[in-house]
Write a protein that binds this DNA or RNA. Structure first.
Length: 156
DNA sequence: GCCAACGTTGGC
DNA sequence: GCCAACGTTGGC
């Protein structure tokens, strides 16, 4: 089974690639996803060993800042039934969980961020969801080719 | 099941 | 801080 590739969006003021690196085991649960499309990607298609581009949104330097790896597959997101949690959803419960999360582990912080401008300008990255206007999906699939172009660009 | 209103996202 | 684009909600 071939490995899949993903893009994870995060606001670095909330959670950055460096925050991930500083976690115990350099691992964190990707909780709080409350969008069905993004959930379905996690639930149906994400496997251990898949790699993710860690994208910084809503910040000074918007773009891909590093790489993480899926180290735990989809399981119920318990923050959904914790009253008072920012991501609380009364329609979810331990008996009937509506939302899932995966665990991701830090792999690499790029020597420089590959900016959204570069992605938009690159002829082979035009199809990336993140390059398209109005895109709000926090987890999107990327192709192996896209993944590799970005990793290579980070080292230039 | 339609669709207007609303809240959120996220680039700028 | 602005605002376009989008997803969700709820009245009908």
């Amino acid at each position: 089974m071939a490995r899949n590739y993903w893009l994870f969006k995060s606001e670095p003021s909330e959670f950055s690639i460096d925050d991930l690196k500083n976690r115990p085991n350099q691992t964190e649960s990707w909780d709080g996803v409350r969008n069905y499309q993004a959930r379905n990607f996690m639930r149906d298609d994400m496997k251990c060993g898949d790699l993710g581009l860690f994208y910084h949104s809503n910040c000074d330097e918007v773009g891909v800042a590093g790489v993480c790896e899926i180290t735990q597959e989809a399981h119920p997101d318990h923050t959904a039934w914790e009253k008072g949690n920012k991501h609380f959803d009364e329609k979810s419960s331990p008996e009937n969980p509506r939302w899932v999360m995966v665990a991701v582990t830090w792999k690499e912080t790029f020597p420089r961020t590959v900016t959204l401008d570069e992605i938009k300008a690159h002829p082979k990255l035009q199809n990336m969801r993140v390059a398209q206007r109005g895109n709000r999906l926090s987890i999107t699939p990327v192709t192996k080719a896209e993944f590799e172009i970005i990793c290579k660009a980070a080292r230039k």
